[in-house]
Design a protein around this nucleic acid. Structure first.
Lengths: 188, 188
DNA sequence: AATATTTTATACCGATAGGTATATACAAAA
DNA sequence: TTTTGTATATACCTATCGGTATAAAATATT
């Protein structure tokens, strides 16, 4: 990938999170990235396409980071779900955390027919399925149900952190997750 | 309140939720409301002021509805928290539900210094305190902690419903809430 | 009925939105 | 060294943004 395309993606990601997507013009992006609109539109057909690529990259980066964290922990796969919120907490509390892309995007593009909204919805669903897989490996009976509940805690905590940075919401989300996981295990 | 001001507020509320706040221009609002910009700017100094009044009214309406529901149920105040998510479910599943204003607004105005963001943050905090009061009346020890957890479920479910209408997330949020409430009561 | 006052409608303001036509700078290939 | 193709920069397009000056219409007062 071109170094400039990468720079544009990086800058756009930051600006979208700190100023909002619709409030960030392409002129601002290229100015901060130190390039021009012609260059931007060479790599991205439209602003919508840029938004979509930003969202995809953000989610991929997070998933990769999370996968590695979970795998570096050499425990049995069945135990991964127990550590999920520890890593989520680490991620949320890291200085690099600037929010969850698909949460913000779905708010700015509420129309369910919109391509960006559809992608956000898909990413949310995929993350839930990822949790569900962890739950299944932990032999939890209602894996999908637990995954949905944990994803609500995750999205709620991300939301809370967006409203007030350093809210500490994730700490309580983690506690709630433990209660729900333990309860689900008992019934399995 | 003037009938036209009321109409503008109503139309703006709907458009903000269905199209997004930043994506809805004042021209569109007055066109749908059947009036003109001069009239709008007579009642609201700026678009920001209109947004703020829309947010305040939305939250007041929801709180009033919820209060009445909780009070019409003639149970002891200590039991109200047990029914909280039943009413939230009713509200979310009603056809009138179009989302939670402060959640969307905080996503569109991420800057913590922004007046709209500050209001969103305040409303989220106030709702959490409302839940905390219910928890205290139910003699729950860590009322604030439980309230925070329940608010995460609430905001997560609202988020999920925003991503995919009719997701059924609220049903599982309700189940999770029951587990957390029962657990908190046991420790009190 | 004539005047005074408020409300509404039209037309416009500069700034910025996303996007592009054209020209120039710069490589690599010949 | 000249040619050829690609990447970059400048300038500009139309549409729309939030907001307003001004004039017409409607209402109230005398």
């Amino acid at each position: 990938m071109s170094v400039l395309k990468d720079k544009i993606l990086l800058v756009a990601t930051d600006l979208f999170h700190t100023r909002g997507i619709n409030s960030t013009g392409v002129d601002t992006i290229v100015a901060v990235a130190g390039t021009t609109k012609m260059t931007l539109y060479k790599y991205f057909n439209t602003k919508e396409q840029l938004i979509i690529e930003v969202l995809k990259k953000s989610q991929q980066d997070f998933q990769s980071w999370l996968d590695e964290k979970l795998n570096s922990n050499t425990k049995k796969p069945a135990d991964k779900i127990q550590y999920l919120f520890d890593y989520i907490e680490e991620w949320v509390n890291s200085s690099a955390f600037i929010g969850v892309g698909f949460i913000k995007a779905s708010a700015e593009f509420p129309n369910e027919e919109n391509a960006i909204h559809k992608l956000s919805s898909l990413q949310s669903r995929e993350f839930r399925q990822f949790i569900s897989k962890l739950a299944m490996e932990a032999n939890i009976k209602d894996a999908d149900g637990l995954a949905l509940q944990l994803s609500l805690l995750f999205e709620g905590a991300a939301q809370a952190e967006q409203m007030k940075r350093g809210s500490g919401a994730i700490k309580y989300a983690k506690k709630a997750a433990k209660i729900l996981i333990d309860g689900a295990i008992k019934q399995s």
